[in-house]
Design a protein around this nucleic acid. Structure first.
Lengths: 253, 253
DNA sequence: GCAGCTGCTTGACCCGGGTCAAGGCGGCCA
DNA sequence: TGGCCGCCTTGACCCGGGTCAAGCAGCTGC
């Protein structure tokens, strides 16, 4: 990590901010940054991103990062832990919109209404990076990769949301949910087989449009069929191929 | 279109592009332009948008504007007619993602995969404006309103897509669908009471996750209850308040 | 005119999964 | 250590809406 790669004509070897190692270290733990690095954002761009980011947290399970109706000012990248977003309808029923793992962006759906349309709630100990949206938009005017990355992330969320709209059996939904989580963990360097479910069965059910009893029953059936093992909130996938076959119509890969 | 514009020092008084009336006329019929005007895009910005837009069509009912797997290069604004987007799954079943009325943007979900993830199909005679996305992104780097409008539209589509994910009864879905169409027509200057459904019952059913028989039955029930009148594909809303009450949990306004 | 087709409507039946209810299993605090 | 509370599981029952099937209305072409 302590390696300094002086590109072009850098001449301030002792300046900590000039230490690329530190930059990368910072960004390898900060999700959005990591993506930018991966996608070719250069070191100067990275440094600028670095300047406008603000570390927030840790939040404890149950605490809100933002709430419905708050004025929109920033998007958040999850650094550690898991966040859920939810709406509460007129009758007080909860509707889970999504779960966000480290490296994922929360709040993109608030740009349009300029008000957060949902609550973002920590499911466990959570740390986030806060990106002031006006500042980010301004940076995007100067750095094409930043703009491109924002467009890409926004577009991706549209696609992801539409996939969920499909009518599908409980088995298909759950298989797809498990595989989706697995792939997202894997993309972040975690094991794709052994996953920890930070959310309750009730949250999963709500998110998938099922009853929590159904989630229990289907998981048991999957376990009896040798597709996976569940022990409380620890889940181990043992036959990914079979799960993929069940979920094939929902996989957007 | 044969107009040439010299930006910054404008010195060509007889140049048709300098005629603001023409510009606005153009954009009042071109959906995206209209929005830009409404949101304060200045005349110079408008002229630049004008340059990169390309009129395409008319398409006849059933023709594709783009197809699944085509390389992403542009987004489309509907000028007239109605467009549906759909995916076809492995078993050949269709899944309707959305319907697009004049003034609405199609193709935003293709930015991320860089491949159109769905087909866009004309439901009747359709004309569109084609915006080269690279060109639009470049313009967005220079004109904040263009960038902002793109972010806004992308964000809005995320919110709209998530709303549909809710579990809801057939009555709620249909009431919300009718009211949504009504509001979108009204926003474009059409009557909010008397709507023409360009899509088949099957398409509506598919979009809402219902069977077409159910759509028929619910519409009949609504008609018997005096909420609306249906005659083939002509629909007249007679009791919007009652519909809103049925759909209240799905209305995102 | 009639045939044929496609989209819509209506009825009869049935099943996936929601609901209700009764435990079981931890985890936390006194 | 015990009692409580939240989460999870499992069983029994039931209903909304899907499916199947039959008829109907409007359109196009011969």
């Amino acid at each position: 990590m302590g390696h300094d790669e002086t590109k072009s004509g850098r001449i301030t070897p002792h300046n900590p901010i000039a230490d690329d190692g530190d930059e990368y270290q910072f960004c390898s733990t900060c999700a959005f940054g990591a993506v930018c690095v991966g996608r070719g954002l250069d070191k100067i761009g990275l440094a600028e991103l670095h300047c406008l980011v603000e570390h927030v947290g840790p939040y404890r399970a149950g605490e809100s990062i933002f709430r419905t109706g708050d004025r929109f000012g920033a998007i958040y990248a999850v650094r550690s832990g898991t966040v859920k977003t939810r709406q509460v309808d007129l009758e007080g029923r909860e509707l889970i919109l999504g779960f966000y793992l480290p490296g994922e962006l929360v709040g993109l759906n608030a740009i349009h209404p300029e008000i957060y349309p949902c609550d973002a709630i920590a499911l466990d100990k959570v740390e986030v990076c806060r990106f002031s949206f006006p500042a980010l938009a301004t940076l995007a005017m100067r750095i094409p990769q930043v703009q491109k990355e924002l467009f890409r992330r926004l577009s991706k969320d549209i696609g992801d949301a539409s996939v969920r709209n499909q009518e599908a059996s409980a088995d298909e939904r759950l298989a797809a949910f498990v595989l989706d989580l697995s792939a997202r963990y894997e993309a972040r360097g975690f094991s794709p087989q052994a996953l920890h479910l930070s959310m309750s069965r009730g949250d999963i059910a709500n998110y998938l449009g099922l009853a929590s009893e159904t989630v229990s029953r289907v998981l048991r059936r999957f376990q009896d069929g040798g597709l996976l093992t569940v022990d409380g909130r620890e889940l181990t996938i043992s036959n990914a191929a079979a799960l993929k076959d069940i979920a094939k119509n929902l996989l957007h890969h």
